[in-house]
Design a protein around this nucleic acid. Structure first.
Lengths: 133, 133
DNA sequence: GACGGATTTGACAATCGTTCCCGGCAGTAG
DNA sequence: CTACTGCCGGGAACGATTGTCAAATCCGTC
């Protein structure tokens, strides 16, 4: 335990490849999609390795992870601060949104009920203008 | 479609058993936990049947379903209107909360970005007063 | 530049929750 | 009561993810 800053991480081709994909990607993607993209680019990386590196990146708060209704875990590059997502259920386009009001409301509600160390998850789904037509 | 009152559903022992469990249960439970409880009570019901009935109840809005971080689907008896949950991450105690402000905010944000047919999910997690001590 | 120890990789098997399949059973209408 | 139709159950199938372990790779050091 002690220091959390420990990062005996090595700088491997595979780790770079995964990070590079995520840097490019606009929307959410599953581990398997990322594995496919890597294969297409010729940067073949083992599936296990993709999973491992995505988890590592998510643990390091460099990626956001969420589960879709099918039970798949989706990953996406994310700005660091606290925010939420507005996701098009058709094309997957994602908009980051902030809502200080909501944050305060959530904290207030939780405290009213005597809860501590409050966190929350909020996702908004809809059909974006382009897809609605 | 037409009338939603259609119920070509049969009134089986198994269906009653599952519904009865859910009526008793206070917190969230997974399909497999419910299957186990049924077995303990001697009301043995096939696992497939438990899954089917839970889904049916959730489709009928008699239960709320959500996925935990392990990818399991958890079910819980729920009041019918739209609301959210405040869940203790230690003991699982759940409080239903409403937030008209949040609903409006989510809809407004989505519309600002041209999204239609907006839905959202919101869960608040914390440690309840009892568990904090 | 080569060496050595530790970390990482990758192919495959294993796991876990959930769904599918299908023969047999049981509500329900007539 | 009889027939009809949906439901049940259990085991196989499935898909995402994780575990395993020898071989490859990285990196500080000589």
């Amino acid at each position: 335990m002690s220091t959390t800053s420990e990062s005996p991480q090595r700088n491997t081709r595979q780790r770079r490849a995964v990070a590079a994909i995520m840097a490019d990607l606009e929307g959410f993607a599953s581990a398997q999609q990322i594995h496919d993209i890597l294969k297409q680019r010729g940067e073949s990386v083992g599936l296990s390795t993709v999973y491992r590196n995505l988890q590592a990146l998510a643990d390091a708060d460099l990626l956001d992870a969420l589960r879709n209704d099918d039970g798949e875990t989706l990953y996406r590059r994310c700005s660091s601060g606290h925010h939420h997502h507005l996701v098009c259920r058709v094309c997957g386009r994602t908009v980051e949104v902030e809502g200080p009001t909501v944050e305060r409301w959530a904290d207030a509600v939780a405290e009213d009920h005597g809860f501590r160390d409050v966190e929350h998850t909020l996702e908004i789904f809809g059909t974006c203008g382009d897809c609605a037509s």
